Simulated assay, not measured.
Amino acid sequence: MKKYIIFAALLIILGGCTSWHNDNISDPKLKKESYKEDREFCTKRTGQRTNVGPSNENGQRELTRNSDKFSDNRKATSTYNDCMQSRGWVKK
């Protein structure tokens, strides 16, 4: 049983280790600047395209159920990933 727990923990830790790479940019300094610009652009775009949950009386978005949170988070993540991929970035 202990082996399974250790194995599962390793999978969880190693499974989350990804980063964005763009093989079209060879200069490391330019790659870093381009990543920062693309990340900011895609973050703004994701915020504009995905509204999170129903509005409350203050006009802020608020989630009430776990399924709503999961659904909206998945939609936002998918939109962000699509945006980054359209700009030439690949998750590795």
Rank of each mutant, 00 (worst) to 15 (best):
M1P: 10
M1C: 12
K2S: 11
K2I: 05
K2H: 12
K2R: 06
I5T: 12
I5S: 03
I5C: 04
I6Y: 08
F7C: 02
A8N: 12
A8H: 10
A9Y: 05
A9F: 09
L10V: 12
L10G: 12
L11D: 05
I13D: 03
L14T: 11
L14F: 15
L14D: 13
L14N: 14
G16M: 02
G16P: 07
C17H: 13
S19Y: 09
W20E: 02
H21A: 03
H21D: 13
H21M: 03
N22Y: 13
N22L: 05
D23A: 11
D23S: 09
D23N: 14
D23P: 07
N24M: 06
I25C: 12
I25Y: 13
S26T: 15
D27F: 11
P28W: 11
K29Q: 10
K29P: 01
L30T: 14
L30I: 14
K32P: 01
E33C: 03
Y35R: 07
K36N: 13
K36C: 00
K36E: 15
K36P: 05
K36W: 02
E37Y: 11
E37K: 15
E37M: 15
D38A: 15
R39Y: 15
E40G: 07
F41K: 10
F41W: 04
T43F: 13
T43V: 06
T43D: 14
K44N: 13
K44E: 04
R45N: 10
R45A: 07
T46P: 08
T46S: 14
T46M: 14
G47K: 09
Q48I: 03
Q48V: 02
R49P: 01
T50P: 00
T50S: 01
V52Q: 03
V52E: 00
G53I: 02
P54I: 01
P54K: 06
P54G: 00
P54C: 01
S55H: 06
N56V: 03
N56E: 09
E57V: 10
N58F: 12
G59R: 06
Q60E: 12
R61E: 15
R61Y: 04
R61C: 08
E62L: 03
L63C: 15
R65Q: 06
R65A: 02
R65G: 00
N66H: 07
N66C: 08
K69C: 07
F70G: 05
S71F: 04
S71I: 00
S71Q: 02
D72G: 05
R74A: 13
K75T: 14
A76T: 06
A76G: 11
T77L: 01
T77P: 00
S78T: 05
S78W: 02
S78D: 09
T79C: 00
T79G: 01
Y80G: 03
Y80Q: 08
Y80K: 10
N81E: 11
N81C: 03
N81P: 00
C83I: 09
M84L: 13
M84V: 10
Q85Y: 10
Q85V: 04
Q85P: 02
R87A: 01
R87C: 00
G88F: 06
W89T: 01
W89D: 01
W89M: 02
V90I: 08
V90C: 02
K91H: 04
K91Y: 06
K92S: 07
